[in-house]
């Protein structure tokens, strides 16, 4: 690691005052950032520890939940309100990492995980437009079994690694931010970016901006929701493909529906085309398959990951059949 300073934020105002300085990064549980610093992929000169800021999970006036960004992943997964009202979120969290890592990792930090693309980590031997913008991407012609099939660019084919974020994308969550310019909110689905020409810029965060909370809207039909993750081993592995879904069925037809995919794109992928194809349709296997086809119609396989297209379609159908 390159040398750095360390301080603890006393409150949000204190954090954003310090966080605006050049070379400064916010530190949550450290499960990703400390590793990246050890690999010298991240080289902050100052860390502002924000784990002492709000970790409260509270009811909002409209019947949703507000989650302080310093809440640990385990605390969110085990919260009884989350387990019963947003089971997809609990299921997604406990599908990720290991119990030790979930005990450390914060909710805010989970959003800012960087890709696990092997070429991104290979500082010595590979080209990567995230590590060194403009350098090129060795994944596009390389070993890309784990890489993106949707929304990729000629600059980057990496995928976002989070499970929790796939559930948040499906749940219409909102991200609360704070900077020296004041607070603002972003829809969760607008928080992460597709790679385009600048894959090193992964979110809409401004320099020094801090995630203070995630808000879940009241979504009564999300009581019927779940998360399915397909991976190379049955535990403690990143997703090849994952599906978060919530569905409302009235008189045998699909009412409201929310679907998001993980492991397929540079950001948690809200499956809007599948949702549009499903609304008002009979809640049966034929409708689910047609919706999956609609979502994956734009998929573009790389050399090694064509299997993800069929896998994603089948996973969508399987999850919807589970919920129906």
């Amino acid at each position: 690691m390159t040398p750095f300073g360390y301080s603890r934020a006393q409150d949000v105002a204190d954090a954003v005052r310090r966080g605006g300085e050049a070379g400064t990064m916010y530190l949550g549980g450290g499960t990703n950032l400390v590793d990246l610093m050890r690999e010298t992929i991240e080289r902050p000169t100052m860390l502002v520890d924000v784990t002492g800021l709000s970790r409260d999970i509270t009811e909002t006036p409209d019947g949703g939940l507000r989650i302080g960004a310093a809440a640990r992943n385990t605390a969110l997964a085990e919260d009884r309100r989350v387990r019963t009202r947003y089971p997809v979120l609990t299921r997604a969290i406990v599908a990720g990492a290991s119990a030790q890592i979930r005990n450390m990792a914060t909710v805010g930090g989970n959003l800012l995980q960087r890709t696990r693309c092997g070429y991104f980590y290979d500082d010595d031997g590979s080209r990567c437009n995230k590590r060194a913008p403009g350098q090129g991407c060795d994944a596009i012609e390389g070993f890309n079994r784990n890489h993106a099939i949707l929304g990729a660019s000629s600059a980057c084919v990496a995928v976002h690694p989070s499970d929790m974020c796939v559930a948040l994308a499906a749940l219409d969550a909102v991200v609360h931010l704070e900077s020296s310019a004041g607070p603002r909110v972003l829809r969760f689905t607008d928080f992460h970016r597709l790679p385009g020409d600048h894959p090193q810029i992964e979110t809409m965060l401004q320099p020094g901006e801090l995630i203070t909370a995630i808000e879940l809207p009241p979504l009564p039909f999300a009581r019927r929701s779940t998360y399915r993750k397909v991976r190379d081993r049955s535990s403690y592995a990143f997703a090849l493909v994952s599906v978060a879904a919530a569905i409302e069925i009235e008189n045998g037809r699909v009412g409201a529906v929310r679907i998001a995919l993980g492991g397929v794109a540079h950001k948690p992928w809200r499956a809007s085309k599948a949702e549009a194809a499903l609304r008002g349709q009979p809640a049966n296997a034929a409708s689910f398959a047609a919706a999956a086809e609609a979502e994956l119609a734009d998929a573009r396989p790389l050399k090694d990951n064509g299997f993800k297209i069929a896998l994603a379609k089948r996973a969508i159908v399987a999850v919807l059949e589970t919920l129906a």
Binding site: Y6, G29, D35, S98, Q100, I101
Partner: peptide, 26 residues
Amino acid sequence: NQGACGACTVLVDGERILSCLALAVQ
């Protein structure tokens, strides 16, 4: 030393964590 194996697991106030990914100062 990168959070993949669990050999460094210790308890913090009774909770299990990975000490390799933990900065002591935290």
